[in-house]
Design a protein around this nucleic acid. Sequence first.
DNA 1: CCGCGATGTATCGGACCGATACATCGCACG
DNA 2: CGTGCGATGTATCGGTCCGATACATCGCGG
Lengths: 212, 212
Amino acid sequence: MLELAVLGLLQEAPMHGYELRKELTAKLGAIRAAISYGSLYPTLRRLQAAGWITEAAETPATAEEVPALTSRRGRVVYTITAEGKERFAQLIAQAGPETYDDTGFGVHFAFFARTDQATRLRILEGRRRKIEERREGLRDVLGRAAERLDAYTLELQRHGLDACEREVRWLEELIANERSGRAPADPRPGTAGGRGDNDSPPTPGTSRTERP
Amino acid sequence: MLELAVLGLLQEAPMHGYELRKELTAKLGAIRAAISYGSLYPTLRRLQAAGWITEAAETPATAEEVPALTSRRGRVVYTITAEGKERFAQLIAQAGPETYDDTGFGVHFAFFARTDQATRLRILEGRRRKIEERREGLRDVLGRAAERLDAYTLELQRHGLDACEREVRWLEELIANERSGRAPADPRPGTAGGRGDNDSPPTPGTSRTERP
DNA sequence: CCGCGATGTATCGGACCGATACATCGCACG
DNA sequence: CGTGCGATGTATCGGTCCGATACATCGCGG
């Protein structure tokens, strides 16, 4: 999951670790607390070993007059490679079971602007299915096993059930929007948000496979 | 977290691994998918090594006529020890930072019936504080950094913000109930749910309508 | 009688987290 | 003028937990 997120962010601009973490936190703040350096740095090393990103020590050119007395540790800037972009496209398009759990879905959703419409639809529907299953499980417990459980546990289930129902409704809305070729929460096309580098045209009918 | 959950469940009855997992899934279904055996069995071994649970192979006494031909692997039943109960009480009472994250809070809440009122209040307020912080973070992003983000990411943040606001309201309600000495979602005492083995009297003063 | 789904125990590699360590920089406060 | 503190920045280590996998038994329907 982290792999996908890092690749996605570096596609927007080269960054160093600290910056990456901040951007990650901003982009994924809705679904997870803040990613740890204990995950980030090993992931960066892994990605680099695989050839999907390159690492370049920041040396401001005119800085060699500074002696190596304190062995200045410069920032390390990571840049995505062509292979990395391919890898990202592959990861974003293929949906495994982990694509539909809370974290996995959140990360995929956060990069929907770089995802073609067919895949978006597939992911939204898969997520809906999963949440519906969870919802049924909770309903079962609240119905059949209610007398076995104490009031607090029951209250927890009720709150969870409510959250499920709410998310299903949210997904329904997104799916309907997606089918009618509109951007999220954007009743009329043309106003489509991201000025800048939105790869995939938000309108339907398109969705060609990739570039040469 | 798993440690706390296992200790809590075994306090209700001795169980074997499979059963434990099912109960765990029922009790915590609202907050996490289903715990993996890859976590459960190592945890059981850890708890046993610490002396908090004991492990007993199930041998139905009148079964020695069955030869060891197939080396019948019996079910292993785990029972909590006195030290284990102490450990559980200690874990449930002390609140670290991990007590307030999604999973940690869920597990603590699921055992609120075995938690004294002061601790319940402390945990609910700590959780509220944490969610309020997350909410503020999301509001910041939606306010200040909105133009940097694409429409999908924004939509994700909105949904997350909504969930935060909802949870804060839920917590407020629970806190108010707690302060007034009522069971959750139970406007009048006397109906107090858990008939059975609730160790800690649910509320001060009220609700001693215990049935035979 | 055979297969299949539920019951049941167990391990292994890997992802991710929390704590910790250490170094630099700018600026506010004394 | 210095000094200390919060932000920036890189990095490791131990430990928890997950997903895949393996293997064995049992009851039931076809």
